[in-house]
Simulated scan of single mutants.
Amino acid sequence: MHTLLLQSLFPLLLITSFLSINVELSLSQDDLQHADCSEAINCGGIGNISYPFWGENRAKYCGLPGYEVKCVDNVPMINMSNINYRILKTNPSAPSVTVARQDYWETICPQTYVNTNIDFSLFNYTSGLTNLTFYYGCTSINLPGLNSSFSQPCNTNNDSVTYVTRSPLSDPVTNGFCKHGVNVPVFSTAAVPLEANPTTVQDAVDEGFELGLEIDNVQCKNCVDSGGTCGFNTTTVGFSCFCLDQAYATVCNATAPGAQGMSVLLL
Score class of each variant (00 low, 15 high):
residue 120 F to N: 14
residue 208 G to V: 02
residue 39 E to H: 13
residue 17 S to V: 06
residue 222 N to M: 00
residue 251 V to G: 04
residue 56 E to V: 08
residue 117 N to G: 08
residue 48 N to D: 13
residue 26 S to E: 13
residue 55 G to P: 03
residue 79 N to E: 15
residue 108 I to Y: 10
residue 218 V to L: 09
residue 210 E to M: 06
residue 153 P to H: 05
residue 190 A to K: 15
residue 199 T to M: 07
residue 119 D to I: 00
residue 179 K to N: 15
residue 123 F to G: 03
residue 167 S to P: 00
residue 102 Q to R: 02
residue 89 K to R: 15
residue 97 V to K: 07
residue 160 S to P: 02
residue 219 Q to A: 07
residue 179 K to G: 07
residue 19 L to P: 01
residue 225 D to M: 04
residue 32 L to V: 05
residue 66 G to D: 11
residue 66 G to W: 08
residue 241 C to F: 03
residue 147 N to V: 02
residue 71 C to R: 12
residue 121 S to I: 00
residue 217 N to C: 05
residue 7 Q to D: 07
residue 250 T to E: 04
residue 220 C to F: 04
residue 151 S to W: 09
residue 128 G to H: 06
residue 130 T to H: 07
residue 39 E to N: 08
residue 38 S to I: 00
residue 49 I to T: 01
residue 4 L to Q: 11
residue 197 N to W: 06
residue 11 P to L: 04
residue 96 S to G: 10
residue 142 N to H: 04
residue 44 G to P: 10
residue 246 Q to K: 08
residue 107 T to W: 00
residue 63 G to E: 06
residue 189 T to D: 13
residue 211 L to E: 01
residue 139 T to F: 07
residue 138 C to P: 04
residue 120 F to H: 15
residue 228 G to N: 08
residue 132 L to A: 10
residue 114 V to N: 14
residue 213 L to F: 09
residue 24 E to L: 12
residue 217 N to W: 05
residue 236 T to Q: 01
residue 82 N to Y: 10
residue 227 G to P: 13
residue 216 D to K: 11
residue 158 N to G: 09
residue 22 N to H: 05
residue 211 L to T: 04
residue 149 S to Q: 12
residue 182 V to L: 10
residue 230 C to I: 00
residue 190 A to S: 15
residue 257 P to W: 02
residue 154 C to A: 01
residue 135 Y to Q: 05
residue 92 P to C: 07
residue 122 L to P: 09
residue 56 E to I: 05
residue 228 G to F: 01
residue 229 T to I: 00
residue 114 V to Q: 12
residue 172 P to G: 01
residue 47 G to E: 05
residue 85 Y to K: 12
residue 248 Y to R: 00
residue 266 L to Y: 00
residue 109 C to D: 11
residue 203 D to Y: 13
residue 124 N to Q: 06
residue 155 N to I: 01
residue 44 G to M: 11
residue 109 C to H: 09
residue 57 N to L: 02
residue 253 N to I: 05
residue 185 P to A: 02
residue 54 W to D: 01
residue 209 F to G: 03
residue 153 P to F: 08
residue 16 T to V: 09
residue 47 G to L: 12
residue 189 T to A: 14
residue 11 P to Q: 09
residue 137 G to E: 13
residue 49 I to M: 07
residue 92 P to I: 00
residue 242 F to K: 08
residue 20 S to L: 10
residue 64 L to P: 09
residue 31 D to V: 06
residue 220 C to A: 11
residue 236 T to G: 01
residue 107 T to E: 02
residue 141 I to T: 13
residue 186 V to I: 15
residue 108 I to D: 12
residue 37 C to Y: 04
residue 147 N to Q: 10
residue 3 T to Q: 13
residue 233 N to D: 15
residue 109 C to L: 10
residue 24 E to G: 08
